[in-house]
Amino acid sequence: MKYKILILIIAVIFSAGVVCSVIVLNMPKKNTVQIKSGGKVLYTFDLGKEKDRTFDVTTADGRNTIEIKDGKIRVKDADCPDKTCVRMGWLRSGAMPIVCLPHDLIIAFTDDDSGVDAIAE
């Protein structure tokens, strides 16, 4: 009896996880992208207007090469040991950010449009 309840709890948590994952994956994209490190915003882009380019972002912990192409953004290369951020590919979901935990670097869509041009260059 005790185990049935525990298994039921697991089943509920698991289903909730699956449902939430599907919801997160289907969130719409936005245009403004922010690159953040340590809670501070390093760059803000309007992907619709950005030219195709590649550049390095260096934090205290390491370097990430960011690529912007056809209004999409990704981490092209990084000197972190696991390269999870590289394998995540282009920023797709409107909600789920690309993160590089070893370097404490986050690339995410944001609603905030203020100061786009000021920081982008």
Binding site: G17, V18, C20, V24, M96
Partner: peptide, 23 residues
């Protein structure tokens, strides 16, 4: 820990995937 280090609540959106994978 990741939330504390990065101060980014958006990371919570990874949690459903972690839950499924963790199970």
């Amino acid at each position: 820990a990741a939330l504390l280090v990065t101060q980014t609540p958006a990371l919570l959106l990874y949690y459903p995937f972690l839950v499924v994978a963790g199970c």
